[in-house]
C-alpha cells in the first residue's frame, strides 16, 4: 500500500500543475476549492504535498491570473484562473500526458494482474 501511495504521489507530482490548470479552467477557484475539485475526481492523495507552492509557481510563470472576490459569505478570497499562456500550456501538457499515457499503456497492457484476496 505504501509503495502504491508513493507511486501515485510521484505520478501526480509530474502532472499536478496540469490538473490545477484544468480545474480552474472549468471556473475560477481559490486554493481550498481546487483541492476539493481534485478530491471529487479521486485525487485525494494530493494532500501528500501541497498545492500552494505550485500555485505560486504558476502565478510567477504567468500561467494563471488572480483576483480577489468575496466567497460564499466568507472573507474575500484569492481566485485563480488560467491566463492565455496557461491555456496554451494546458493544451500542450494534456497532449504530452496523453502520448505518455498511451505509450505506457502499450507496454503495460499485456500484463495480467492477479490480485490475491
Amino acid at each position: 500500500m505504501a509503495v502504491s501511495s508513493t507511486r501515485g504521489t510521484e505520478l501526480l507530482r509530474g502532472v499536478l500543475d496540469l490538473c490545477l490548470l484544468a480545474v480552474i479552467d472549468e471556473g475560477p477557484a481559490y486554493g481550498y476549492e481546487m483541492t476539493k475539485r481534485l478530491r471529487e475526481r479521486g485525487l485525494s492523495f494530493v494532500g501528500e504535498g501541497s498545492i500552494y507552492p505550485l500555485l505560486g509557481r504558476l502565478e510567477r510563470d504567468g500561467l494563471v491570473e488572480t483576483y480577489r472576490a468575496a466567497s460564499n459569505g466568507g472573507p474575500p478570497r484569492k481566485y485563480y484562473r488560467p491566463s492565455s499562456a496557461g491555456r496554451i500550456a494546458l493544451a500542450l501538457g494534456v497532449s504530452e500526458w496523453r502520448a505518455a499515457r498511451d505509450a505506457v499503456d502499450a507496454v503495460l497492457a499485456p500484463v495480467k494482474v492477479e490480485v490475491a484476496t
Binding site: 501541497s50 500552494y52 507552492p53 505560486g56 509557481r57 510567477r60
Partner: peptide, 11 residues
C-alpha cells in the same frame, strides 16, 4: 519549510 517553499516558488 512550507512557508519558505511557497514564497520561493512565487519568486
Amino acid at each position: 519549510s512550507f512557508a519558505a517553499s511557497w514564497a520561493a516558488e512565487r519568486g
